[in-house]
Design a protein around this nucleic acid. Sequence first.
DNA 1: AAACTGACCAAAAAACGAAAAAGGTCAAAA
DNA 2: TTTTGACCTTTTTCGTTTTTTGGTCAGTTT
Lengths: 198, 198
Amino acid sequence: MVKKSQDDIKNLIVGTAKNLFSKFGFQKTTMNEIAQSIHKAKGVLYYYFNNKEDLYVEVLSRELGEVQGELRKILNNAKLSATDKLEHFIKKRIQLLKDVPSYSEIIRNDLIEAYNFTEQITKQFDDFLKNSLMSVLNEGEENGSMTFKDMNITVENLFFVLKSSDISILLKTEYKRFEKTVNSLTDFIICGISSRTM
Amino acid sequence: MVKKSQDDIKNLIVGTAKNLFSKFGFQKTTMNEIAQSIHKAKGVLYYYFNNKEDLYVEVLSRELGEVQGELRKILNNAKLSATDKLEHFIKKRIQLLKDVPSYSEIIRNDLIEAYNFTEQITKQFDDFLKNSLMSVLNEGEENGSMTFKDMNITVENLFFVLKSSDISILLKTEYKRFEKTVNSLTDFIICGISSRTM
DNA sequence: AAACTGACCAAAAAACGAAAAAGGTCAAAA
DNA sequence: TTTTGACCTTTTTCGTTTTTTGGTCAGTTT
């Protein structure tokens, strides 16, 4: 009972913080605003979190966790071929990330001046991406739908291309061409990776 | 004789401006500094150029012009196969661009807040890239070393990947992995585009 | 005439200090 | 156990002044 209540408050804080951070960004969101939004004194935030950065990391962590959950569904879908998994994975990933403003913020700040306190969580998310790619490529190679000279290098390259695309896609607000770009790029990658039988 | 002298001064200005812009960037370089560097009064700069922006565009234009010249050599090298041309082109391009700080500056400012006065020249450089890719891909398709579903789309996708990579490579100062990344990425692209005979 | 100067201007940026607001702490209250 | 609100120190913000900057131009030099 007591534990339940504590979790509720914590969730309330994180949920509110998520909205405010997504609206105003990390710097322009104040701990006071967050506290006021839940009609509590500022001090209570420090009962549940060590500091502002930790709260932000918690928000980011949950959001990226949800993204990972969605992507895992694709990877675990037995009905999909490896190629289809890769295709859906790439498209879904960028689509989901568009709705995680904190991720865009981190990318932006990474290019200018780093938020080093998010390193850990973004590193973990990067590892998830690499592992996911590795698993799909492995599956593809095993059933012969894909071929590679060196799979590790291919994973690294795919990783690089996807991360680079993140910057272009998430930071440049060209919403019109967004979907088309993603689709084309995905096809381009899939096509390059697939075994061709001509 | 008179014309010759005028050109000399103009070249002197552009050369000096190039050094200063590359050291301090567009904003932090003053017209006074440039003038002092050539031991002239500030006013003389406005005899040769309309304003600071125009001078910057001139510097950028010349630098990108040199890059284009180098790249054209590759495209016109009859000894190279289409695939080799593409490979060398991609590698040479990023390598040359690393030495054009104004290009990096534009990329950076493009992500934050645009320098709209460089639009024209960067647009032209983008067109050069697209045209170059198109010509190589055409050559590759004609002699059967490359195959495409839709060449125009492939050019657009290649263009997107290269431009996205620019951001990652030129803005993140990871000099160690730079060369390796470029090489891997290039191989990745080449491999994806080539006709495979297995 | 072509090339250049340097005083001059309006506008932008830098410097500055005061005031406000920020993150964070903690003893006491609920 | 959870919450409060006064309190501290550090940052940010803001308004002002000062300096610097981009740019002009009448006039000098070559």
